Structure formats: C-alpha cells, structure tokens
Amino acid sequence: MRVRAPFVWPEDKAKLRRRAIVLEWATLGSMGTAVIVLYFVLGNSQAMRTAWIEDVLSLIPATAYLVASAVEQRKPTTRFPLGYYRAVSIAHLVGATAILVVGCYVLVESAAKLVEQEHPTIGLMSVFGCEVWGGWLMMAALFYSTVPPVILGRLKMPIAREIHDKPLLADAAIQKADWMTGTGAIVGIAGVGFGFWWADAVAALFISVDIVRDGVRHSMRAMGDLADRIPHTVRGDAVHPAIRVARDAAAGVDGVARADVKLREEGHLLTGIVYVELRSDAAVVDCVDRVRKAVEDSDWRLYDISVMPVRPGTI
C-alpha cells in the first residue's frame, strides 16, 4: 500500500504555527486562572454564572487545538496511509461545538430568568476583615477575565488567516465571546446595583445571540470541510483562490490542452485531483509529473495532488 510522504511546512509558515501553539498554551494558562478567580466571587448573578461557564468551556477549543497539532504531526502509516491531517478539521468542529453549546446555554438560562422574573441579590463579602459590596469584586474579577481574550484573540487572527487555520479562528471567536460576556456581565451587575433587577439577565441574553450566531457559522463550516466541500477561505465564505491558481498552473504546462481540478480540505492542507486533457503529441508520464509539480508549487497548501489524464472533450 502506498503511504504518503509527510508534509513539510515552509519555514515561515512553520514559525507561525509554532507561535499559534504558544498562544494556545497561553490561553489555557490565562483562562485557567480567570476560571479560578471568577469561581470565588460567583454569587447568584446570572451574568456572572454565564461568564464563568463560558470561560470553562473556552478551554475546550484551545485543548482540542493542541491535541490536534500533536496528532497532525504523526507520519502516515499503513493503517492511516493518508496521514492524520484531518485532526485539525476535527478540532475545528470541537471548537465550533463548544461555542454553540455556550451560546445556547446562555440563551436558555437568561430567557428563563427573565420569564421567572428572578431578582438577583448581591450582598457583602468579607475581604481581609472588611465588608465590601460583592458587585465590586465581581466586576474586578470580570475585568481581569476579559483582558487575556482581547489580547490573545487579536494575536491569533492574523496567524489563522496566514496559515489557513480554521480551528485557531474558531478559538479566537470564542475569545471574542469571552470578553463580550465579561463586559456584558459587568454592565448587568452594575444595573443590579442601581436597582434594575432585569439588567443582569438582559445583558447575558443579548450576548448569547452573538455567541450562538458564531457557533452556528463555525459549526457549518467545520461540517462542510469534513464532508469534502470545496475549499473556502478562513474568514468569510468565499471559494479559496488556490482552486483557480491550481487550475491555471495545470493549464499552463506544455502539452496540456485543458485542465480542471477537484480539491478538498484536510486541515491546513488542500488536496485532490487534477484532470487534464493532453495534446496528441504529449508524453503522458512526463506531462503528468510536470503538472503535479506545477500545481503543488502554485500554493504551499497544495499537497499530494493526483493527476488524471482524460479523453478530449471530457473537461
């Protein structure tokens, strides 16, 4: 059985990938401390509970990413001759599902609190023997929990675009939800302090809508990639330009009359089949090799491309 040669990352992309892994470890460390801090000042605030649960679930995409990054580097074997590159796509689905679960939970809980008209109470807490209104401690903890997501999310975005890293983008999206939830919770707690009992639940409700939207969008993209949808860009839902580039590269090889491609995503990579109509005087084996090399050289993501000569008029 033919086993794929391991994919070799270009040095500049490999450097960005290593940086992404470092950022994910930083995410686990910073958000882990935020979870601990929030736990000790939870009280009975719905927005506070929402922020804490979301921070706990936000550890899932980073963990999935780190596991997938380790699995992806394994060499293809006779049992997995195509390698483990789809582990990254699975991590994308796991991260997207975490976003969706967070959003749905927040939406249902917040709506229930409004319907039941539950009035949250924020009492006094003892700090070094002094009685302090719990809302101040909650808001301080929430502010602390919003700082790392803002910084880490912004650092991850350009890397995700550069190395075609959808799970990293999904993680950046849930970190956006983290700081939005934290900010909304601060507003809600302040509202409770001013006597507006509904401010707490309304803040969490509005935040949940945006989280659910992100979760649905990323889940649909992740499932599409695993179902071999044609490659799309990391941000937005545009067809990946590598498809056109690969087609043009194949058509530009001497001896090729026409060319077409069918590509799919395997994590960071794009692979698939190139169909070529050869001119009558072309040497088949030599032309096929040149087409494969031209296509794989046209974009660093293109890997293990198969080339299939077809009869004239087929394309």
Rank of each mutant, 00 (worst) to 15 (best):
M1N: 04
E11Q: 10
K13E: 08
K13Q: 14
A14N: 14
R17W: 07
I21S: 08
L23V: 12
L23P: 00
A26K: 03
G29F: 10
G32N: 04
V35E: 02
I36S: 03
Y39D: 01
F40S: 10
A47L: 07
A51R: 00
W52S: 07
D55A: 11
D55T: 06
D55S: 07
P61Q: 09
Y65K: 12
Y65M: 14
S69P: 02
A70N: 05
V71N: 02
V71H: 03
P76M: 10
T77C: 09
T78D: 15
R79Y: 09
F80I: 01
Y105S: 14
Q117R: 14
G123Q: 13
G123R: 09
S126N: 12
F128R: 04
V132D: 03
L137N: 06
F143T: 14
V147K: 12
V147H: 06
P148L: 10
I151P: 00
G153D: 09
I159Q: 05
A160C: 14
R161N: 09
I163P: 01
K166A: 14
A170E: 04
D171C: 10
A172R: 00
A172Y: 08
I174K: 02
I174P: 01
K176R: 14
K176T: 14
D178F: 01
D178A: 10
T183E: 01
A185L: 06
G191A: 07
V202R: 01
H218K: 00
S219Y: 05
A222V: 06
A227R: 08
V234L: 07
R235M: 07
A238K: 07
V239S: 09
D248E: 13
D248I: 02
A250L: 03
A251H: 07
G255Y: 08
A257Y: 06
K262L: 08
G267C: 07
L270A: 11
R279G: 12
R279H: 13
R279V: 09
A282Y: 09
V284S: 07
D286L: 13
V291P: 11
R292S: 11
K293V: 15
V295W: 08
E296C: 08
S298K: 12
L302Q: 07
D304S: 10
V307F: 12
P309C: 11
V310C: 11
V310E: 13
P312A: 07
I315T: 14
